[in-house]
Amino acid sequence: MVAGQRLIQTTSDILLGWTHAVGLDGRPRDFYVRQLRDWKGIARPETMDPALLRLFARLCGASLARAHARSGDSVAIAAYLGRGDRFDRALAGFAQGYADRTERDHEALAAAVRSGRVRAQNA
């Protein structure tokens, strides 16, 4: 994970790394290590109006594309994607299908809560 993160980040966290140590349960394991607090803000999409949400989505997409382009051969990736909108349409179709699935899953959870099969509490 650390090696992959270093590949896709423009500038890695200087404290990013890993170590092998005994866990609290007494079993040895690998641990991912990074800075304790980065003092950065966090986006809250649920508070954004549609225009700001579109801008946020555009920035996230651009960042993700840049990160993936850094991790591979950007010319080969661009050639694979082509010039048309076929990839865009496929991605939008996947996103719509994923959103629909999420809505169905949420409705199933809400129904289970209403029926008493699952208990829910506000965080």
Rank of each mutant, 00 (worst) to 15 (best):
M1S: 12
M1Q: 09
V2S: 06
T10R: 08
S12N: 11
L16I: 02
W18C: 13
T19M: 14
G23K: 07
G23D: 12
L24G: 15
G26K: 05
R29G: 15
D30M: 12
P45F: 01
P45D: 03
E46C: 07
E46M: 05
A51H: 07
R54M: 12
L55R: 05
F56Q: 06
L59D: 03
A62G: 02
A62L: 10
A62F: 00
R66L: 03
R66G: 10
R66P: 01
H68A: 05
A69C: 09
A69T: 00
S74M: 04
V75P: 01
I77Y: 01
I77G: 07
I77W: 01
A78L: 10
A79E: 14
G84Y: 00
D85C: 08
D85T: 06
D85W: 00
D88I: 10
R89A: 15
A90K: 04
L91Q: 02
A92D: 03
G93M: 05
G93D: 15
F94T: 12
Q96E: 11
G97K: 14
G97F: 02
Y98D: 09
A99M: 06
D100V: 04
R101G: 13
T102P: 02
R104Q: 12
H106L: 15
A108Y: 00
L109A: 13
L109Q: 08
A110D: 04
A111E: 02
A111T: 07
A112D: 06
V113Y: 01
V113K: 07
R114Q: 10
R117Q: 09
R119A: 10
R119E: 13
A120H: 03
N122I: 12
A123Y: 05
